[in-house]
Amino acid sequence: MDDLHKIKNLLIFISIILGFAALYVARDLFLPIMIGLIFALTFSPVVRSFARFGIPNLVSAVAIILGAGLTLGGASYLLSGPVSEIIADAPAMGVELRHKLQDVIASIEEVKDASEQVEEFANGGDSSNVVAVKQPSLLAFAAGSIANFTALMILGLIFALFILASGDMFYDKLVEAFPNSSDKRRAKNTARDIERQISHYFLTITLINAGLGICVGLAMLAVGLPNPVLWGVLAFALNFLPFVGGMFGTLLCAAFGILNFDTLALGLLPAALYAFCTTFEAQFITPAILGKRLNMNTVSVFLTVIVWSWLWSVPGALMAVPFLVLLKVICDNVPSLSILGNFLGAKSLAENNA
């Protein structure tokens, strides 16, 4: 029995490793599927609500997908000009930023020079064997990445359209796959719970991020940083990335603030305001609204973000929390996975029983 148990655990471990490998290698296949599935779970309650008023599922699904597509396309078009200018001017801005911070980074340059000397010494003093690989320009790289993500997003929205238009067909097929009535009832309750949790999370976090974007835009307007609307939209989008979004936005604000203001203190003021807004939102607003519904500990969220960021880069980080919500709901409804569900939750079993 012990040998069988060890073999079973080994097979489970191998299956998990192979699953991660498949997700990493075939990201262009699985990413639109995940986008479509999460989008469909988010808006399924909306389609069902429209159906109660006699609106066919196909009509409401097409309206939702078209609305989402037009919103994303319109926002991308309006922001394409400023973003393209920033990307095109990035090399010159980097030189200017380096000039303004030359006193601050002097020590870093000394460390870098020492490191290069050590590397040259390790290579026997011959640096002629170093081959310089010409990298593509930042603008070309960004354009290629955006085009690839846009194509995957379109495929995901089309997949979501088919799911939303089918109504409860997939729920019925899921229930029919289980043999007895108790399993059928549990599967149906689990599916509905997943739908409610993900829909509540995405719709609520979207409203919270919209409020954050307005606050950040007004703050940048107050301090005189150019393109306050762009900064508001950026704050809205980056806040969907747990942990890293706020830090990345703060660093960007610091860089552009230093470039646009004469003194270092004034240059860091936009970054300080951005950090204050995101910190206040993360510590008070979101926990107050989502705390009871999103019952997950910070460690599990952080680890999930790291894993999915490694697998699928920025799109993976965006879907990390929804995936964790899905996994947590499944664990809460399947007794054999209760240990994993307890680890993902913010409370221990003793606290839950109390």
Rank of each mutant, 00 (worst) to 15 (best):
G144W: 00
K134L: 05
Q117G: 09
V118E: 07
A147D: 10
A114M: 06
P136I: 11
A132V: 15
D126Q: 07
N123C: 03
E116W: 06
D113H: 09
A142G: 04
A132M: 11
A122H: 09
D113A: 10
N129K: 09
Q117D: 14
L139H: 01
Q117Y: 02
V131L: 14
Q135A: 15
G144V: 01
N148L: 13
K134T: 10
S115E: 09
G125I: 05
K134E: 04
D126A: 04
A114F: 02
G125S: 08
I146S: 01
D113R: 08
G125Q: 05
F121G: 14
L138G: 02
S128T: 13
A142F: 03
S145T: 11
V118Y: 10
L139T: 09
S115N: 13
A122P: 00
V118M: 12
D126L: 05
A147Q: 09
A147E: 14
V131K: 15
D126P: 06
N123S: 09
N148F: 01
V130S: 05
N129G: 14
G125L: 07
A114G: 15
L138Q: 03
D126E: 08
Q135V: 15
F141H: 03
F141P: 00
S128G: 06
N148K: 14
A114Y: 03
A122G: 04
A147C: 04
V133C: 06
